[in-house]
Write a protein that binds this DNA or RNA. Structure first.
Length: 578
RNA sequence: CGGGACGUAGCGCAGUUUGGUAGCGCACCUCGCUUGGGACGAGGGGGUCGCAGGUUCGAAUCCUGUCGUCCCGACCA
């Protein structure tokens, strides 16, 4: 490809609406352009990279025994009614009607369709196990698209679905996929951590996420991952559990009484005012879970993990209650407290979920539903009724103790690039997808599902591989392998050497660009660095001595070599990919 | 959906406070010059100032509405 013909427009400056590096760089280097919120055009450079990621995924999935197919992007409402997700999925599901008024949706994931396919196509245990996958655009009408390709509404995903006769088969395939995933991300230049996670809207029992670990100041990593350096424990914050380290749990109050606590809306203010540890206070937060009021209780120095709370109450949606809603609860119960002074004491018709951490508190402080007053010296079973529901709803914090080995946990930020689930029979039962088992009875499929965000993986790779000059994607997924730059296009010898290099590399199957633009060298070098050609051969003045410059974008190393040697180096590097 | 900000040429921005008929840099086209890290000179093309109303002799500027975008919170590959 000649640079003068390559469809790419690099920008001198970063776009103003981009926040994270991968977004800024992909736009500036001419890989992508936004079309609508969370919807992007993949320009030729991006598309080449995406296809390379796809092909790595294909190779590893095929090697792992999965078979590729392609399902429709538009799906009928009936299937979603069968699985029950038409109601459950919420606004993220892009719904539409066809001209007949039939309900349709844009596929955010394909459990329904694949289950339908299996139901129609798999009649006997003899056809099992099987793992089917596709690579396709998905659409999720995200609440808040952001970060370019890292959180688009339309994105490319590989989704695989496995069908087994029993749990043992599923477990085996789950392991098989986990291994394939690790290889896939490695080949894309990404080190990943496989962490336990909540299974969310997809459902099922066990699930793990593959996280690309980011440094803490990189906000492209939207997930907090807790992990143990001693053993292998690691989990997304929505799922992580821990043992609390020693803390003061006795408030030390001699007797229970209501005391004045002016201007103590926050735990900090209250602790300072009463001169006590925050860990001796019961914090009450009011939530709305599917229109039902919920009070969540945690120790004063801890935070509620909302996903855990949502699971604990079995809700689809959860949000913190507004001041007006809290007031409504208070009025209905004949109380006057506002946020900061709330507790379940004397409140009816509200679900109360306590975190385990509050149980061991003694002589503690708790709200009494009267503004500017708290109850001190309270104890469970006496002044405060023990909540009927005690669950783990606490957000883990760094330094808490690993449940597996007792070491302190650490935290890091991560970009979720892959996710695997054990679905079990959730969809097969709901949709009556059964096969004839060896014993002659009908049984539902035991299913697993396995996703990889293709476009997100590519963006994560940029997030991990760049410098102040531009993108440094690894050779395996860079749009091109190399660029040949004649310093001065009017210099005949330089052009001759450059052309020869270009042709030789092309013949050898190297994906190479010749920068034939009559530009000053600075412009060409800046563009080459920005776009991120892994190798650059520069034909400059030293062609007179039979030498060209060979530069490695990844490590910045530069050497003067003969043109033959440069060609050999690149061909060797490209060969080593396979 | 709640809170905040912003919509002026492909990109980055000024002009809005105090209304007077649109500008700068980059990019693009032509010519000259230049060729090892985003040169320089001359000339040129491109914007109904997000959209719709309103106020006014006159609106990018003031008012109302609306749409869009981005940022902070709750979701996920």
């Amino acid at each position: 490809m000649k640079m003068s013909k390559l469809f790419v427009q690099t920008l001198r400056e970063f776009p103003s609406d981009a926040e994270v590096m991968s977004h800024k760089l992909l736009v500036r280097a001419g890989y992508i352009r936004r079309l609508a919120s969370g919807v992007y055009n993949y320009l030729p450079l991006m598309w080449r990279t995406l296809r390379k990621v796809e092909n790595i995924v294909r190779q590893e999935m095929d090697a792992a025994g999965a078979q590729e197919l392609l399902m429709p992007f538009v799906q009928p409402e009936e299937l979603w009614q069968e699985s029950g997700r038409w109601e459950v999925y919420g606004k993220e599901l892009m719904r539409l009607k066809d001209r007949q008024g039939r309900g349709m949706c844009l596929g955010p994931t394909h459990e329904e369709v694949i289950t339908y396919i299996a139901r129609e196509g798999i009649k006997s245990y003899k056809q099992l196990p099987v793992n089917l996958y596709q690579i396709q655009s998905k659409f999720r009408d995200e609440v808040r698209p952001r970060f370019g390709l890292l959180r688009g509404r339309e994105f490319i995903m590989k989704d695989a679905y496995s069908f087994d006769v029993d749990e043992a088969g599923l477990d085996k395939e789950y392991e098989n996929m986990a291994k394939a995933y690790t290889r896939i991300f490695e080949r894309c230049g990404l080190e990943t951590k496989m962490v336990q996670s909540d299974s969310g809207a997809i459902g099922g029992s066990v699930s793990h996420e593959f996280m690309v670990v980011c440094d803490s100041e990189n906000n492209a990593g939207e997930n907090d991952v807790f992990y143990c350096e001693k053993c292998n424990y690691s989990a997304n914050s929505n799922h992580a559990i821990s043992i609390l380290p020693q803390a003061v749990t006795n408030g030390g109050f001699e007797k229970a009484e209501i005391v004045d606590t002016p201007n103590c809306k926050t735990i900090e203010e209250l602790a300072a005012f009463l001169k006590i540890e925050p860990s001796t206070i019961v914090k009450t937060l009011v939530y709305v879970a599917d229109k039902q009021y919920v009070m969540a209780l945690v120790r004063g120095d801890k935070t509620v993990e909302e996903i855990k709370l949502q699971n604990a109450v079995g809700a689809n949606e959860i949000r913190i209650a507004s001041a007006a809603e809290i007031k409504e609860i208070m009025i209905n119960n004949g109380k006057t407290g506002e946020a900061g002074y709330i507790s379940p004491i004397g409140i009816k018709d509200v679900t109360v979920v306590a975190d385990k951490s509050v149980l061991e508190l003694k002589n503690f402080v708790i709200g009494c539903n009267e503004t500017e007053k708290h109850l001190v010296g309270a104890n469970w079973g006496k002044e405060a009724q023990l909540p009927e529901k005690v669950e783990d709803i606490r957000l883990v914090q760094e330094g808490e103790i690993c449940v597996d080995c007792g070491s302190p946990l650490k935290v890091t930020r991560g970009i979720e690039v892959g996710n695997i689930f054990k679905l079990g029979t959730k969809y097969s039962k709901a949709m009556n997808a059964v096969y004839m088992a060896e014993d002659g009875t009908e049984k539902p499929f035991i299913m697993g599902c396995y996703g990889i965000g293709i476009s997100r993986t590519a963006a994560a790779a940029v997030e991990r591989h760049h410098d102040e000059f531009g993108i440094k994607l690894p050779l395996a997924i860079a749009p091109y392998h190399a660029i040949v730059v004649p310093v001065n296009c009017k210099d005949e010898l330089q052009m001759k050497v450059a052309n020869e290099l270009y042709e030789k590399l092309q013949k050898a199957g190297v994906e190479v660009v010749l920068d034939d633009r009559d530009e000053r060298p600075g412009v060409k070098f800046k563009d080459a660095d920005l776009i991120g050609f892994p190798y650059r051969i520069t034909a400059g003045k030293t062609v007179n001595e039979g030498l060209v410059e060979f530069k490695n974008r990844a490590n910045g190393e530069m050497e003067k070599v003969t043109p033959e040697k440069a060609v050999e180096l690149i061909i060797d590097a490209v060969k080593s990919l396979a």
